[in-house]
Design a protein around this nucleic acid. Sequence first.
DNA 1: TATGCGTGGGC
DNA 2: TGCCCAAGCAT
Length: 321
Amino acid sequence: MQQTRIDQGTAYWHKFKDRWPNIQALAEADLSDVLKAWQGLGYYSRARNLHHAANIIAFDLDGAFPENAETWRTIPGVGPYTAAAISSICFEEVIPAVDGNVIRVISRFLGIHSPIDRPEGRQELEAFAENWISPQYPGDHNQAVMELGALVCTPRKPDCGACPLNEACLSRINTPGETPEPPIKLGKTTVRDVVLDFHVIVTDHKVWMRQRPAPGIWAGLFEFPSNIHPGERIERDRRTHFPPEPPWKSLISLGALGDPFHHLLSHRKMHVQFWLWKGSLSQGYGEGEWTDWNCAEELALPRVLERSWKDVKNSALLQIR
DNA sequence: TATGCGTGGGC
DNA sequence: TGCCCAAGCAT
């Protein structure tokens, strides 16, 4: 659930636990099935890392989970926070787990006004966390601070009256009754406009699907062949850019689906448009393969395709006749 | 060190 | 509509 709300991830967690109840089962699963189960949750490298990690633990480590943060850090997808959280909570290692909640709690308590995404602010924060961690109950301490941040010391309008730290909290003292200024972040992610063209290549019964390469957006997920390029305007002559060569047959109007719509990512504003092409079963169209529509629905798809799938399919089947 | 990586909720 | 943020990590 890295960078993901518990509310958003909990249903997925139950689904994973039911389907793959232990590390061996997850290790032996097909990656495509894991990705399909992850569909819609985002940050899909986490699914690949989880599967990879399960294999390392099940086979390389003979099913023995690491028991300290240093070893956990060698597992793919496990960074400083996750290693510290697991090791302190499961094995009572005395190491602070610093997530977004903890950053907010400590930066407010200390009144840190230097940006917490810079070395100075970060160092100040880490130093305090190291001193603060309870040697007796490191796991409980870490969970308590995280819960404090999640339930009381919230990003907006924290409930300072309910906070056990309010007496000494510099941020509360300096800005009573308001949303505290810390944490200060410098690096704001810029949202860039990109144009995303999906090329829906169909025959009477099949559609050409490809798996997206790693690294990059939606790596490992499936899609209609696509182009992503900078900008926000759909150029009139886009069809001359794609496909680059025959054997492309003809372009068919998708009607309303031809109108671009917006799909938002944290760092991109995508202007999405579908293009429908009539293909031939005897031809290939680059990476990918001919797929039955109902089989394609079993593949892991990015949200933008999950949402538009029915409209695209219906329109394609209608137009192709 | 800076950037890429998804999606959804709240305001 | 726009912005912030969420049990961060890899490169």
